Simulated scan of single mutants.
Amino acid sequence: MQSGYYSATGGMVTQFNRLDIISNNLANLNTNSFKRDDVVIGDFLRLYQTHQETLPLKNQTREAAKYINRNLDRVPIISEEYTDKSIGAMSRTENPLDFALDKENAYFAVQTPNGVRYTRDGSFTIGTDGTLSTKEGYQVLSRVGLDNQGGILIPQSMEVEADKNGNLYFRDTANENIAEPLAAGSIAIVSFANPKYLKKVGKNLYEYPENRLNERENLITPNALYQHYVEKSNVNAVIEMSNLIETNRLVDMYSKVLKTHMDDLNTEAISKLATRA
């Protein structure tokens, strides 16, 4: 077996997968509150040496070493995928239904057909039923309605105000003598003890495992909410384009290695075997 051919193939597959992630980052460059994804590329041997003490067979290194091809162990693989949760730039708008969160571990809770999901995209609107909703029509949950899927009703002709803790107030814009704002509940802003378990499920939403919902921490994240702002994507176009160029060059390099094995080394091997025969 040509181990070099195997290694080049594994490396190319790894770079193709990385290319998909980079392309998705660039496609969401202008998506509000989008968090870029990235990968850690390693190899089996390095991972094995790092974690061999925790493996169940204590002597497998000694016994298996007789048969391991070290070249195969060096095939590049994606050892970990992760999401960069750093906060994107804040952009001011004139829309009172636009909200941004300036804490990394803070999310809005919304009701979807598949259950409660979480998002950092606070570009809201008023739904057909008069409740505060996402652009996709998912109801934004209130603090007291988090466990019973209770939303936030926005009466007509009412202007919405919010403080940094997510508390909402209404003003009657139809009244010439604008009265004191009326308390109108609060937006549910949740954080998690282990945000690493948040999983992207599309449409800028995250899912948290149901068996870990007891780790959902506080419903009030102090000084986290900013009205009239939206959080932009944390994707840096320059960095992603540099990664894209680097990945394309690696794919081209692996392609040349594969071509060398197929066209040159195999041809030479067949010729020598034929001569000896």
Rank of each mutant, 00 (worst) to 15 (best):
A89T: 09
I154C: 05
K259Q: 12
K259T: 11
A100V: 06
I220P: 00
Q2G: 05
Q60N: 13
Q60G: 06
K256Q: 06
L19K: 10
T247D: 06
S23M: 06
N32L: 01
I41C: 04
S242A: 15
V13E: 02
V201Q: 08
L153H: 15
A109E: 07
Q60D: 15
S91F: 04
I189A: 01
T54G: 12
S7F: 06
K259N: 09
Y107C: 04
A106K: 07
A106R: 06
T119V: 11
L26F: 04
M12D: 06
A237K: 11
N218C: 02
F34N: 10
Q111P: 00
I68C: 00
Y5F: 15
M241T: 15
I126E: 09
N148P: 00
T93R: 02
L244A: 13
F44E: 13
L258M: 15
N165D: 15
Y254F: 11
Y254Q: 06
D84Q: 10
Y48S: 12
V251M: 12
S33T: 09
N236F: 05
N234L: 01
N24P: 01
L244H: 12
K85D: 02
A184Q: 09
M253N: 07
E231R: 10
G10S: 13
Y197L: 13
R249I: 00
V238G: 09
H51L: 00
S271L: 11
E136D: 14
V160T: 13
V144M: 09
E94G: 13
S91R: 15
S33R: 14
I78D: 07
V116K: 14
L198W: 03
K203N: 14
N218V: 14
L45D: 05
I239A: 14
L29P: 03
Q15E: 04
A109N: 07
D172P: 00
D129V: 03
N17Y: 05
I189Q: 08
A224Y: 05
R212G: 01
L219P: 00
M12W: 02
D121N: 14
Y48G: 09
N24F: 02
A100I: 02
S255V: 00
A109C: 08
G137R: 07
V257N: 04
P181M: 05
R216N: 02
N28F: 10
Q2E: 08
S23Y: 03
V40Q: 15
L205D: 11
G10H: 10
M90Y: 07
F99W: 03
V110P: 00
R212H: 00
T119H: 02
D20K: 11
Y138L: 03
L19T: 11
S191L: 04
D37L: 05
G127T: 05
I178N: 09
I126Y: 04
K199E: 08
Q15Y: 02
N30C: 07
D172E: 09
V40G: 01
F108G: 02
Y206M: 11
N95T: 04
P209M: 05
L45S: 13
V190I: 15
D264S: 14
V13Q: 03
